[in-house]
Amino acid sequence: MKTTSLTLLALGAAILLAAAGCRSTAVNTVEPASPTAPREMISDKRVLTDQTLNNIVRIVGLNAAMGDEGFLKVQVEVENRTRRARSFTYQVEWFDEHGMIIDSPIRVARPRTIEAREVLLITATAPTPRAKDFRIKFLEPTTE
């Protein structure tokens, strides 16, 4: 009898802990049905090697714009399709007109957090007007 009560207690505690751990942090959003500044989306090429990561940061769309002084600005829309807030890092690489990578002291992996079901916009500005192309890498956090 005593053993059964203890087992029930342990089970109850486990359920409570699991429920607390799975607490939803999903995001609700609102925006105009007809945006006045529609984005010019560009077609993209994706190389997906990690399906788990692809669920955390699913790429929704990509758009780019050029400023008056010739600096390219890109924006990637990503969505977390999981039911938990997740972290990821991303890194942007820029290429010149010959397709050669442009090295910069500020080309770093940037950490971000995305809530469950949240749609996030990531922006990056080219470090020089020489940058004509780009590539964005997404990685899972490497915390040990």
């Binding site: 400023g67 008056d68 002084e69 600096f71 600005k73 500020i106 080309r107 770093v108 940037r110 990056a124 500005t125 080219a126 470090p127």
Partner: peptide, 14 residues
């Protein structure tokens, strides 16, 4: 990185 991008975005590029 963030500061340089902000400077380019808000001051140099316009």
């Amino acid at each position: 990185d963030a500061m340089t991008a902000s400077l380019i975005d808000n001051f140099i590029n316009p």
